[in-house]
Design a protein around this nucleic acid. Structure first.
Lengths: 192, 192
DNA sequence: GGTCAGGTAAACAGATCGGTTTACCTATGA
DNA sequence: TCATAGGTAAACCGATCTGTTTACCTGACC
């Protein structure tokens, strides 16, 4: 057994081609050829292109490995990781946003997967902010995600990875502002 | 002369269909039918679909009308306008970002138009921030644009117009932070 | 009245798409 | 030994795409 099982090779080929060239631009034949597999075999493992798209998005849905590092460090580290992603030559935007735009239909399974992924990320932000004792963690988590999304979209158009640093700096201000307000609130309560 | 000239009707039809259904999802025949024009006429006015796409994006490139309102008010007003856009039922993301994603090819004329549009917006932010006397106007303008882009992308996936308010609140914090820092710097200089 | 630019309607060309079908091949295991 | 599961290669289907062509029509202007 030299190479992986057909289903995995097909998924790897779909991931590569769908992401780098776009879902609509890549035909089923191209995926099969890239996977070194006949079209018949592809349709044996995935009943339709839509199913393959859903599998592609789900496979990108990797769980975030929990870390013991300080919350603030983890949050800002996410933006550092973002910069490396943007600087990678094969960067082509967020696969979930791309899928939503390329497919169009909000009732397509891919749209639901995209919502799930975004919400998972937001909850990860929120949990870390709560660990920092920030009261408005939910609202701030949404804002951090907006920054992250914005950096992705802006970098896609402008082709400038340094936008991740701009987003990181903004995140820092927002987080620090929330922390300061919490300190002020607490000291006011103490002096009362 | 009951209706507009053919070229304008074609452009209006392209705008409607390209934006609401996507550039790749809409064929030239559909645009001609929507415009009430024969395909021959369409190709007389626009030599190719790519040319029509470029015209569609350029036509959306409306100049921002200058205003005398306070800079801070104008900046935050942009996010209020954004919320109304997101709440509109026909919202389907930023047409420039969508075009970049749908077309893929970074050398396509549409990619250049998208960059121009984004930079124009950024310079509008920057000019207002400079009018407020903010030193780091350029960096902050980039951050405000990231917030705006992020709200668009996030709202597209989640279908939640209130994300514009989240972005607006974040923008307020970033602007106030920049203003406060400027005040601190000035008072420190005065006391020296 | 005749010319002609610019329009319509529809067929056509060549390519590509998602998906199916046919015919053949090959390793495994009772 | 031989059935079978699962693979390959390639033709095929009907639909759709961008773009061209053909044939005809209409209204304005000299």
């Amino acid at each position: 057994m030299y190479s992986a099982a057909p289903a995995e090779r097909i998924l790897a080929a779909a991931d590569k081609l769908f992401y780098t060239q776009g879902i609509r631009a890549v035909g089923v034949d191209a995926v099969a050829a890239e996977a070194g597999v006949s079209k018949r075999t592809l349709y044996n493992h995935y009943p339709s292109k839509d199913a393959l798209i859903a599998a592609y998005l789900t496979a990108r849905f990797r769980q975030i490995t929990p870390s013991d590092a300080p919350a603030r460090e983890q949050l800002l580290g996410a933006f550092d990781r973002l910069e490396r992603i943007l600087a990678d030559g094969s960067f082509r935007g967020c696969p979930y946003v791309n899928a939503v735009i390329e497919i169009g239909d909000p009732k397509h399974q891919a749209a639901g997967i995209a919502v799930q992924f975004k919400e998972q990320r937001r909850l990860w932000y929120r949990a870390l902010l709560e660990r920092m004792g920030i009261g408005a963690a939910d609202a701030l988590a949404t804002q951090l995600q907006i920054l992250s999304e914005g950096a992705l979209a802006a970098a896609l158009v402008r082709g400038d990875p340094s936008l991740a640093r701009s987003a990181r700096a903004a995140a820092e201000v927002l987080i620090d502002n929330a922390v300061t307000r919490r300190r002020r609130t607490r000291s006011r309560a103490r002096s009362a």
